[in-house]
Amino acid sequence: MHKATLAVSAALFVLAVAYWFAADAIPASRLAGQVGADGLPKLLGLALGVLSLLLAGQTLFEMRRAAAAGQGEDKGEGGDRLPGSWREHLRALGLIGIGVGYLLLLPHLGYIVSAGLLLAAVATYAGLKPSWATLLFAVGGGVVFYLIFVKILQIPLPAGFWPGLLR
């Protein structure tokens, strides 16, 4: 946990620096008032920089204290390990992967088909054994979502290439 926190503080520090430079590039306008459009952003960049260093300092301090206190107590506090395993985190990211696939397919296959595919993929991914029930869930779910969002709520979600076939 501590090591990961240190890595995150380093990343946040980099973000702070990058943000500050991006803020510096905001064009100055006479209309922006006394503080300017870059005023708050620069302050935020600075604040994040300082806070990320503080976080690193605090973490190092806790690490030293934990080391001094000895290994046994450290475990008792549940301290120095990230919750979960790397395999779990990869599984978690897999869900995002499915989401990315959905977003890439959505403009081409249209909402109703993409929705069905997403439902099937996520349900299987979350532990459902592929079966007729999965298929039914995907087809039925796709239609239900289509009816709710596109037909009842009139949200113009992408239709995909299907309407082109009808012409």
Binding site: G99, Y111, A115, L118, V122, A123, T124, F137, F149, I155
Partner: peptide
């Protein structure tokens, strides 16, 4: 599994 898929779908629609 159904619930997870359904919630994810709601999030990626509305």
């Amino acid at each position: 599994p159904y619930l997870t898929a359904g919630i994810f779908m709601v999030v990626l629609s509305g």
